[in-house]
């Protein structure tokens, strides 16, 4: 029985889009086309134009933008790992490896950022894959646990052995030319990663990633080496994160134990969960929400960590699809109230 008087219900209709399967879309008009494409075009344009504002936005916002992109790279990396069923609590592992490799290449081999950043991206990702390879059999809790422990292990090892500069870190590295180059570089990397990952996951190769997440046994039965698939996913996911590490190393002209700090794990994790895992746009959106918030709260010290832990908690439990999917769904629908028709048999 519905409540008498207001016998209406909310009806949601997809906007002019006919969906036959997950893949086939039919757009009805130019207006619908614009409706779908405009937000994407605007977002990309805004990102690409932002650096041109230069000093007009001030160094504070430039820093916020760079940090947002760095966290977005780490969150994108997290999302690709999640797509193959690996839950990382330690994105700082990839970040730190990329950072230290860049630091070593620049400091000991004198390569300079032009060489050290791309090399550190590849080598850092390869190193991370090598470290994680024997642990890829682990699932669920256990993989999360290992990724939580590994960055701390590296941190303690560096601290204890004094290798790679020990607690002092490696400083005096070659800087990047200027702020505009920095912003463009990291923004381009984030955009490229987001689009590449979205493309990748839509192919049959990406399909296998999802299949591994859903049911490893059936993927084995289909003739895939699951461990190998996972290793490939780890390598691909590690690329943007290692890049972020290498980039930040050259930006600060310094790399130290802080590269393995927990903040580089919790912040991307929260960004991915708040924005919405699985879409590769959610994590970027999440970074845009979290990083400015986090920067604004810098004077409150650890309180901001408390805040985003709580956000992580609330979104995990309350809105697991994340902000991006939620908004995108609403954006793609009309909503109106319609009268409820009484069913003939009175039910």
């Amino acid at each position: 029985m519905s409540s008498p008087g207001r016998a209406t219900r909310r009806e949601r209709i997809d906007r002019g889009i006919k969906v036959r399967s997950d893949e086939i879309f039919v757009l009805a008009s130019a207006r619908d086309l614009a409706w779908v494409l405009l937000p994407r075009a605007l977002a990309v344009a805004a990102l690409l134009l932002f650096p041109l504002l230069g000093a007009r936005v001030g160094p504070y916002w430039q820093t916020v933008m760079i940090n947002t992109m760095v966290i977005a790279l780490l969150a994108l990396s997290w999302d690709l790992l999640a797509s193959v069923g690996l839950i990382s609590l330690g994105q700082s592992l990839f970040f730190g490896l990329g950072g230290y490799v860049a630091g070593a290449l620049d400091s000991f081999a004198g390569l300079g950022p032009l060489w050290s950043i791309p090399l550190a991206t590849l080598l850092g990702a390869a190193l991370a894959t090598l470290v994680l390879y024997p642990l890829l059999r682990l699932r669920g809790v256990y993989f999360g646990l290992i990724t939580f422990a590994l960055p701390l292990l590296f941190m303690r090892l560096i601290e204890t052995t004094g290798a790679l500069g020990g607690t002092e870190g490696v400083s005096g590295l070659t800087p990047l030319p200027n702020r505009t180059v920095e912003i463009y570089l990291v923004t381009a990397a984030a955009l490229l990663t987001a689009f590449a990952f979205r493309r990748l996951i839509a192919t049959d190769y990406g399909l296998v990633f999802h299949a591994v997440r859903d049911n490893e046994r059936s993927v084995m039965a289909a003739g895939f080496d699951v461990q190998r698939v996972k290793a490939q996913a780890v390598f691909l996911a590690a690329l943007p994160a290692a890049f972020a590490g290498a980039f930040v190393t050259h930006r600060y002209q310094f790399v130290g134990m802080t590269a393995f700090a927990m903040e580089y794990s919790t912040l991307p994790l929260t960004a991915a969960v708040v924005g919405g895992p699985g879409s590769f746009l959610g994590p970027v959106v999440g970074s845009f929400i979290l990083v400015p918030l986090s920067e604004a709260m810098r004077e409150f010290g650890s309180l901001r960590v408390v805040l985003y832990s709580l956000m992580l908690l609330v979104f995990t439990v309350g809105l697991p699809e994340g902000i991006f999917r939620f908004v995108a769904r609403k954006y793609g629908q009309f909503e109106r109230r319609v009268a409820i028709e009484e069913a003939p048999d009175g039910r």
């Binding site: 049959d204 190769y205 399909l207 296998v208 299949a211 059936s218 993927v219 289909a222 003739g223 895939f224």
Partner: peptide, 9 residues
């Protein structure tokens, strides 16, 4: 598609 895409196929 998963088995169709498999290395064997």
């Amino acid at each position: 598609v998963i088995p169709v895409y498999s290395p064997r196929s």
